[in-house]
Amino acid sequence: MNLVDFNVSSISQGGNEILSDVQFSLPPGKSIGVIGPSGVGKSTILRVIAGFHNEYQGECKVEGIHVSPENEKKVRGKLSFLFQRSPLMEDMTLLENLELALLFVKIPKEEKKESIYEVLDRLKLSHAMRQYPDQLSGGMRRRAVLAAAILRRPKILLCDEPFTGQDPVTKDDLVQLFSLIREEYGFSMILVSHDVRETLQLCDETILLMDGKLQAKGDKEALMSGASDRARRFMELGSYV
């Protein structure tokens, strides 16, 4: 069974249609990239899957469960969201934030502690766990957000532009660390980004969205051949930065 089946004929926001006819599915262990220019509605796809956005027609299933307000809790239990901004509470230390993330996971306290320390260790954040989010540097902050996202060992990770806004070196470090973590934790993911290179590098299959619809699907060649002129230009400019 596919982890995510996304079969939506139209997504709208505030009454205006922003995307139409988007279909894809995420098999276990795979990763899908969603690329396209800013404002095309890439993030909205993730928000539909997580049940935050209800203005759409069609169906969206997570492990065979329909995403709807009644199933919200069940669906969200399987997912984790790697947010574009920082979802960490500013008035709590990193450690307290991670404890909050595990509040509703029914495992003994010792195990919680252990898994927090393990994740912090893996992401090289152990020294910063008693610091507040605003004391962390940009790269550390991104790692902290990643820690909060993978802490619950989700099957599916929804990543919303996780590396945007970092300098090239930090970004490269983050991408490498991210691939390592992914191998180790073995989650499937949907990565939303406008960075073509990074997406092609990290994902098995990529979807190109542009001008309100799905332009092409597949690997790099498929994307280049199947797309309109404007989309091809986007790909070319994006690939050789």
């Binding site: 935050f52 809790k73 574009q84 920082s86 979802p87 509470m89 909050l100 993330a101």
Partner: peptide, 14 residues
């Protein structure tokens, strides 16, 4: 709300 902390709480089931 804007920095997605509310959504993140929801994801954590809080």
């Amino acid at each position: 709300r804007q920095s997605e902390q509310v959504d993140s709480l929801l994801m954590w089931g809080i």
